[in-house]
Nucleic acid binder design. Structure first.
Length: 310
DNA sequence: AACGAGAGCAACCGCTCCTTA
DNA sequence: ATAAGGAGCGGTTGCTCTCGT
């Protein structure tokens, strides 16, 4: 404590990274691998602090990062995990290995928080329902601003990047760099229209939303339409169907990323969740669901938790 | 066409935790 | 055992872009 921040040094550049800087950083990391960030500015000649280099790599240049629109499934996962883990974005990101904690955090703050707030507003304007889904979402929103300080954090074990085994260049990222270098053309379109999104949702859930949701959707539609749109509602609630379609897909995706560390990260997260839940009966629908899922299938293998949770 | 408001996101800041000497 | 330095995390800021007037 009390140390001057590393980025306060004279000559350290701040602000947006240039494509040239990105290329230098990527080249260096290709050769040496991520880690030992302190030596990166020295060895590359970059006028950036080590921290800035690490963040740039982690949040933008790292191979395998998926950018752009979040799928309804990802949204659901985030809502889900946020309710369970709180604002522990690194832990949440470990379940969505293609997304960075920063990305998830931003998406939560800019999209999901609003959606949930809208949803809660809608909820307040309706006759109270005993739907677990509604309780769950309310809970999620209420916990969004809490500090979750009751967790015994072991964040050092949640190092996202260092054990990623492959430092091979990401064709996508490199091409993005070059692209950025050569043009001033507009960014790739990353925003799906609501219609497209709706289409995606419909494809995924086959219209078999749980009764509680359908009930609420009908209510919401009947009521003032400016409170929350149908699309938003469906998107928000899409995680209801995860247990039947999403989770396994996600976990199998994650294993293909080459990040071996995610297993231990999940172990930590779930252990923490377990501790928390021990002190916090009864389970919410969400928490119960997640841990039940954790006790079966691929997640079990990954977490090494087996059935001793219950 | 010009301007302002709002949204989205990259990057920074400050704190905490871990490692090492 | 402890202090210092390094690394990571979550919160916040501020720039840029888009959209409405």
């Amino acid at each position: 404590m009390g140390r001057p921040p590393c980025c306060d040094k004279v000559g350290i550049k701040k602000g947006p990274w240039t494509p040239e800087e990105d290329i230098i950083l990527v080249s260096y990391i290709q050769e040496h691998g991520p880690g030992n960030w302190r030596s990166v500015p020295t060895n590359t000649g970059l006028l950036r602090c080590s921290k800035s280099c690490r963040l740039r790599w982690t949040n933008y240049l790292r191979p395998g990062i998926k950018r752009g629109n979040f799928t309804p499934h990802e949204e659901g996962m985030i809502i889900h995990l946020q309710a369970l883990l709180g604002n522990r974005w690194a832990a949440i990101a470990s379940y969505l290995p293609q997304r960075t904690d920063n990305d998830i955090k931003n998406y939560w703050n800019t999209h999901l928080k609003k959606k949930i707030k809208k949803f809660q507003t809608a909820l307040d304007n309706h006759v109270t329902s005993d739907s677990s889904t509604l309780q769950l979402i309310s809970k999620s929103y209420n916990s969004a601003d809490s500090k979750n300080s009751d967790f015994t954090t072991q964040t050092s074990s949640m190092r996202l990047n260092q054990s990623c085994s492959t430092y091979a260049s990401s064709t996508e990222n490199i091409s993005r760099l070059l692209e950025g270098w050569m043009r001033n053309s507009p960014k790739p379109v990353i925003t799906k229209t609501c219609q497209e999104k709706q289409h995606t949702i419909n494809e995924e859930d086959n219209g078999n939303a749980p009764a509680s949701i359908q009930c609420y959707q009908m209510k919401a539609e009947q009521d003032s339409s400016d409170i929350i749109s149908h699309e938003e509602l469906e998107s928000l609630l899409s995680f209801e169907n995860l247990s039947s379609m999403g989770w396994k897909k996600s976990t199998s995706d994650s294993t293909s990323n080459g990040c071996e560390n995610t297993t231990s990260e999940r172990e930590n997260s779930v252990e923490e969740a377990k501790l928390r839940l021990d002190n916090q009966p009864p389970f919410s629908f969400l928490e119960k669901w997640l841990l039940e899922e954790a006790g079966t299938g691929q997640v079990e293998e990954l977490m090494g938790l087996s059935s001793n949770i219950f």
